[in-house]
Write a protein that binds this DNA or RNA. Structure first.
Lengths: 136, 136
DNA sequence: CTGTATCCTTAGGGATACTG
DNA sequence: CAGTATCCCTAAGGATACAG
């Protein structure tokens, strides 16, 4: 695995996030951490999109390297590892909310609960994470 | 070129945007249309990130197919084609703004003008597009 | 269970030539 | 200028086996 943090294609802020999240998998891991309270390798592995094990390991490393995620030993089970969002990772919340809002408007198949949409409209950002656990 | 609109991996709203924008190039075209007033093939081609011609043609087709962009003949020059964001495309603005805000916080190299950041903080969404032309 | 490693196929993408 | 087409290489990723 390689970390390409040095050779950015430009100094554009849009490009900056693409360097880390510009693929089909990385943001799904963030979603699982942020909205689904998943925190272990196996939980990520069994998401609907069926990420394969090598890709998952690669993306977790990249997210860790990017400072979006940290890995810790489970205090209750020393042989288990848990992943957590850092502050930098949690700060992706507004982006995730806007993405959800856009999809909810334009994808008739995306089944975001209405009560979530409503909460979104009432208080665009700064939502508590609890309400988000309802997202499919 | 193929359009994979049918075989979504899931009905998740996060996944929905990844199906269209989950790569390193597509969002840069949206950026050029939204923030840089670019509207022709050649203008996209000469962005800092140096997209190659085949990729650009492919992504423009996909964006058109996704209803994010429309292509029209330039009324002043019949042999010229112009691209525009649709309403669906313009609705990506809040996502783009949140992305910019996040990058500005975490990328010391991303040179977003301070006056833009300030405007962002004062009025999180619903900005006029004019102010955004200042983004590099 | 949490990963690594390997094998192999496909998709992404750079370079360049070419066409209307 | 606005693309298409082709060649070719590399990166992404699926499947599966294996290890701690």
């Amino acid at each position: 695995m390689k970390h390409n943090s040095e050779n950015y294609r430009s100094n554009c802020p849009i490009n900056f996030v693409l360097e880390t999240f510009g693929d089909k998998w990385t943001l799904l891991i963030v979603r699982d951490l942020m909205f689904k309270s998943k925190q272990s390798y196996g939980e990520f592995l069994h998401s609907n999109e069926k990420i394969s094990t090598n890709i998952l390991a690669d993306r977790l490393q990249k997210l860790e390297f990017a400072g979006v995620v940290i890995k810790e030993v489970d205090k209750k089970n020393k042989s288990k590892l848990l992943y957590f969002l850092t502050e930098k990772g949690k700060d992706l919340l507004p982006i995730m909310l806007e993405i959800t809002a856009w999809s909810s408007k334009y994808d008739n198949k995306s089944n975001t609960p209405n009560r979530f949409i409503q909460a979104l409209e009432e208080d665009k950002v700064g939502l508590s994470l609890n309400i988000l656990e309802q997202i499919p």
